[in-house]
Simulated scan of single mutants.
Amino acid sequence: MLLATVAVVGLRILADRYDRTMTRAELLDPTARADRTDRDGPLNYLLVGSDRRPDDTGPEQRTDTILMVHVPAGLREGYLVSVPRDLLVDIPPSAGYPGGKDKVNAAYEHGGGGEAGARLLSATLARLTGIRFDGAALVDFAGLRSVIDLLGGVTMCVRTEVRSIHTDRVFPPGCQRMDGAQALDYVRQRYDLPGGDYDRQTHQQQLLGAMLQRAGETRLRENPVQLHRLIQAVGGSLTVDTNGVPVEDLLLALRGLSTDALRGVQVPSYPQTIDQVSYVVLDNGGEGLFEAVRGTRMSQWAGAHPHWVTRL
């Protein structure tokens, strides 16, 4: 009982530190926000990754990473559902934008980037999938480089040779330790890969899993200085919308979720050229994926569609 009490107190202290370093914002549109009166059902979170800071108002505000994180009731497994950035969708109207069909990653730009861009993106996804989100996070992926370095790097298992178009790096097949710059360079690549952007989505899912795995391996609690630096780096890379739920409650609820229980999921879809523009379109309406995420049958869906599921 004493050890359990100490562990809970320690978690609350960590949560308080996280809470003080994170930026809070309303990232979810009202049409995309879940009613959290039912705390026993599945949890769905929206994770948006960008190389730009949330308050950056410059051009080219499209986001490269869109993940829906689904945690079924029981909180013992999780699914990282990658939304293809070129997915053709209906984007609803917003201030200064009349609405229309475009790639899903354009919703962030049409909304003006930052908080407003995230809200329009969440509304677009809610219209497409029928999913309402329990929270959201806007991640500065470039800022994650320092987080990875503070963790001492991450282990990434490369399945086929990857050549960077940004640097002269070549990532040979096999499991290898990568620092922050290497890991982020690796997960940005999509050209000359067998699965193109689908492989890039899998690599991004693997990176998040590798970071969680590495965080569990390190003895951060024995190094308060390193822990403080890591919390500052993580908090500095995140803008969050917890939908009114305290951070400590989220950490307590998800403490039993291990990296072994995480699966990467790709949306059933295929590339198609329309009016000389490359898009991705849903395959048979997503083959029931969105319905599974909304309900309680995600594990059954994953078992029936192994082609679209990856162990991280």
Rank of each mutant, 00 (worst) to 15 (best):
Q176L: 01
L208H: 06
Q213A: 15
R214T: 15
N44A: 11
G153R: 11
T5F: 13
R255Q: 14
Q300R: 14
P84N: 07
G143M: 07
V170Y: 11
Q61D: 12
G209W: 02
S122G: 09
R12L: 09
D134Y: 04
M68N: 05
T273L: 00
T23D: 14
A233N: 05
T242I: 01
Q201V: 01
H70F: 02
L150E: 15
G256M: 01
H110P: 03
R229P: 01
Y18P: 03
N44C: 00
V225A: 15
A142R: 14
T239N: 11
D149A: 04
R53K: 11
H228G: 12
C157P: 09
F133K: 05
Y97I: 09
D197K: 08
R311D: 15
T155Q: 14
A32G: 07
I91W: 05
D283N: 12
P59R: 10
L212E: 11
G111H: 07
D56R: 01
L47H: 10
T63A: 05
R229K: 13
S94A: 15
G41H: 02
S258T: 15
D192H: 13
T31N: 09
V89T: 06
R33Q: 12
G49W: 04
A181C: 00
R297V: 02
I66N: 09
P268V: 06
F133I: 04
Y186L: 11
M156V: 07
M156D: 11
H203T: 02
A116S: 15
D56M: 01
A118Y: 08
N223K: 07
G285I: 03
Y45E: 06
A15R: 10
Q204C: 03
S258L: 00
D29W: 02
A106W: 10
E287G: 00
P246Y: 01
